[in-house]
Design a protein around this nucleic acid. Structure first.
Ligand SMILES: [Zn+2]
Length: 455
DNA sequence: CGTTTTTGACCGGCGC
DNA sequence: GCGCCGGTCAAAAACG
């Protein structure tokens, strides 16, 4: 394959590193007011996770609800304030003064916070806009000089062979990411040395292969982007991407192949992404003792989408799944976002800076096993499907931050063991609980992670 | 009995 | 041209 790519096909890898610090910052500040109260609950939950880790669904649902409440809290502030005020009035005169003083202070404080919050929010919006503009420009530039690759890197998403060179590249590149990702989300992150930090991401990579003769035409339409949004927006984004992908499909039927490779911790032979697949072949790859399995989408008769699944040879618990092509049909309800990722290909290319080829995309097992993406989910549709802007749920380091399910890494001894129950230690769970909340925002797309990948 | 998996044959690209 | 290799086909087997 590698040879193929080198020669016959041109691969453009565009990497946009989006860290959106602003957003994160804002988020943190904005949410802190509420999180402080909830942190305890979260931790408790984390503990629960420790013991019975298999009730992912359950937890997710709960946490999801929680999360929404959390979001609502901002609006609820006013009410809260008033209520407090009323309460104060009912207090005895003695205390009254003190209380009212405190109240005033608190109120002013709150107002201040609100203002700040708004400012930050605006900042975020601005940033997003800017980013989008940049993205567009980038696309334009890409158009213009697609012959001179900016950061052309050839990588393969699968196969033992491609782990060599790309790996280096990834490491260097990811070095940057880590530094960003770490501060961003993992404030409590402790495990980290570089290697581990690498895993921070749930990054998804997409490659576009252009048929030689189609280079020019297809190139024009291609824009690769990484975007990160607030996690709840991610859904919308994903959906948008899906929809976009589908529509564009009809217009522009797969004249280019997209590839998405996903790494997930998964014990089963394949991860259940909600799509229907028929196995049509199996081969042992050269460098890897583990056989590679080839599947074809059977959801619709003529669907060209294929996927290949192979265990990572470095860590057998990791399953590398590479999706290729674009579905010619809507995905079934309950299909994984991953499975649909390819549909985003035509419009948005996601590239993991880290270049997927080797390690960038890792999704916790539970995650990979039960992600529903709900194509056409009402929730998703609500969120604002038309933003042209968007992002891919599966993108970059920043996203990875968002999904940050990666935080935890432990010893290296856990190869081959990915216990049904949470194998990891407590502090990790702390983190995971937090991240799970984040993840939950993506609810239908991602599920609460119970295991994590480390490398 | 229809569908999926298994598995060796087959094919095309590529390097030598 | 030959052999290697990744990928696919398809007949047979397994499955439900
Ligand atoms: Zn399909």
């Amino acid at each position: 394959m590698s040879t193929k790519k080198k020669k016959g096909e041109k691969i453009k890898i565009m990497q946009v590193d989006l860290s959106l610090k602003m957003e994160e910052e804002q988020k943190r500040r904005g949410d802190d007011e509420h999180h402080e109260e909830e942190e305890e609950e979260e931790e408790i939950k984390a503990d629960e996770n420790d013991e019975g880790s298999d009730d992912d669904d359950h937890n997710v649902v709960e946490e999801d609800g929680e999360k929404r409440e959390d979001e609502n809290n901002k609006e609820g502030d006013k009410e809260t304030k008033r209520e407090v005020g009323q309460d104060a009035k009912q207090e005895k005169p003695m205390v009254d003064n003190i209380v009212s003083n405190e109240l005033c202070m608190l109120q002013t404080e709150m107002d201040r916070m609100k203002e700040e919050n708004e400012l930050l929010r605006k900042a975020v919006d601005r940033t997003m806009k800017d980013y989008y503009d940049l993205q567009m420009k980038f696309a334009a530039v890409q158009k213009a000089d697609h012959h001179q690759q900016r950061e052309p890197r050839v990588f393969l998403s699968l196969g033992g062979d491609d782990n060599r060179e790309p790996k280096r590249a990834r490491e260097t590149i990811e070095g940057d990411h880590q530094e960003q990702a770490k501060p961003l989300l993992l404030s409590n992150y402790r495990g980290g040395d570089t290697k581990e930090a690498k895993e921070l991401g749930l990054s998804l990579s997409l490659q576009t292969f252009e048929e030689p003769h189609e280079k020019d035409s297809s190139m024009k339409e291609l824009a690769s982007s990484w975007l990160t949004l607030e996690s709840n927006k991610l859904q919308a984004a994903a959906t948008a991407a899906e929809l976009a992908g589908i529509t564009s499909q009809s217009i522009n039927p797969a004249n280019r192949k997209t590839r998405v490779s996903v790494r997930a911790r998964c014990q089963g032979p394949t991860m259940n992404d909600g799509c229907q697949w028929r196995k049509y072949g199996q081969k042992v790859a050269k460098g890897n003792p583990c056989p590679r399995a080839y599947y074809r989408c059977t959801v619709a008769p003529g669907c060209p989408v294929r996927k290949q699944v192979q265990r990572c040879l470095e860590d057998m618990s990791i399953l590398i799944t590479t999706y290729e092509g674009t579905h010619n049909h809507p995905l079934p309800v309950g299909a994984t976002a991953m499975a649909s990722t390819t549909s985003a290909g035509p419009n948005y290319m996601l590239m993991s800076g880290a270049n997927s080829s080797s390690t960038s995309n890792i999704i916790p097992e539970s995650f990979s096993n039960q992600i529903h993406s709900s194509y056409l989910s009402p929730y998703l549709l609500n969120s604002s499907p038309n933003l042209p802007t968007l992002n891919s749920f599966a993108s970059s380091p920043s996203t990875s931050g968002i999904f940050d399910m990666s935080t935890n890494f432990q010893t290296h001894n856990m190869k081959y063991q990915w216990p049904a129950n949470n194998p990891f230690s407590s502090n990790k769970d702390e983190e995971s609980s937090k991240s799970s909340n984040l993840v939950v925002k993506l609810d239908e797309i991602f599920m609460h992670p119970d295991t994590f990948i480390r490398h």
